[in-house]
Computed example of a mutant assay.
Amino acid sequence: MTSSARTGRLVPTALLALSVIPITAGAARLAELTGGAEITPENARFFASPVPVVVHILSVSLYCTLGPFQFVPGIRRRRPGWHRAAGRLLIPCGLAAALSGLWMTLFYPRPDDVGDLLSGFRLVFGSAMILSILLGFAAIRRRDILRHRAWMIRGYAIGLAEWTIRESARQ
């Protein structure tokens, strides 16, 4: 196996490993919402308005699971149709994840352990993720592959970093 082949597999594998954190936390939250869990002060906001959190969890899970394969050069080269189809799914998933996250930050009651600084960071990072995805989409429409790649990588990195850091802090 060549060095580039190993690197081509290492990146998506590492990204999938990082994705375990938000996907696992999301699955636990969905189980809580659908399983009739006891309503506590910590989860009451989700039961009061479950649609944003369900949209967020489903879109994040798809974005985290499918996204790493967009970074594999062999897939982009040998299966461009798959890359395009996955991208057409990932763009709305990324936007839904960021928009629902912004909505929850702005409109859900804030937990006691979340201050103004953390809320501000969430607003900045969510907005930056949306902007990155939209700029990446605009670039590919112009057939500017280098800018498309750079903006989509930024959008993915922002989303994965925010989710991973937040869920790690809860553990």
Rank of each mutant, 00 (worst) to 15 (best):
R110Q: 14
E42N: 11
P12C: 06
P41F: 07
M104Y: 08
D116F: 13
P68M: 02
M152A: 11
T65W: 08
P92L: 00
N43F: 09
D113F: 12
L135P: 05
G87Y: 06
P12T: 00
G155L: 06
P12R: 01
L15I: 09
T105C: 12
M152K: 04
A150I: 06
R110W: 02
S19C: 12
I91V: 15
Y108R: 07
R110N: 08
A5H: 05
L146V: 11
G87S: 06
C64E: 08
R142E: 13
L102Q: 03
R141Y: 06
F125M: 12
A17P: 07
Q171P: 02
L146C: 01
G94D: 05
V11H: 03
V55H: 03
A128F: 12
P92Q: 00
F69H: 05
R149G: 09
F107I: 00
L135G: 03
G136H: 05
G159R: 03
L123A: 13
W82F: 15
G136F: 07
A157W: 06
S61V: 02
A150R: 15
G74W: 13
R143Y: 08
F107N: 10
A17K: 01
F137P: 01
L30S: 11
F46M: 12
R78E: 12
T7R: 13
T105V: 12
I165Y: 08
V55N: 04
V54L: 10
I165G: 03
L146D: 14
A97Q: 07
A98M: 05
S132K: 00
I140R: 09
E32L: 12
G155Q: 05
R110D: 07
W103T: 08
T65C: 10
G136P: 10
A150K: 11
I130G: 02
A27Q: 07
G8I: 01
G81N: 11
A17G: 13
R110K: 14
I165Q: 02
I140W: 03
F121W: 10
G136M: 04
H83R: 09
G126L: 07
G67E: 08
E162M: 15
S3Y: 09
G8W: 04
M104E: 09
L118R: 13
P73G: 08
G81P: 09
E42D: 14
M129F: 01
L33G: 12
A5N: 06
P68E: 00
L90A: 10
L16S: 11
D144H: 10
V20P: 04
A139F: 03
P73V: 00
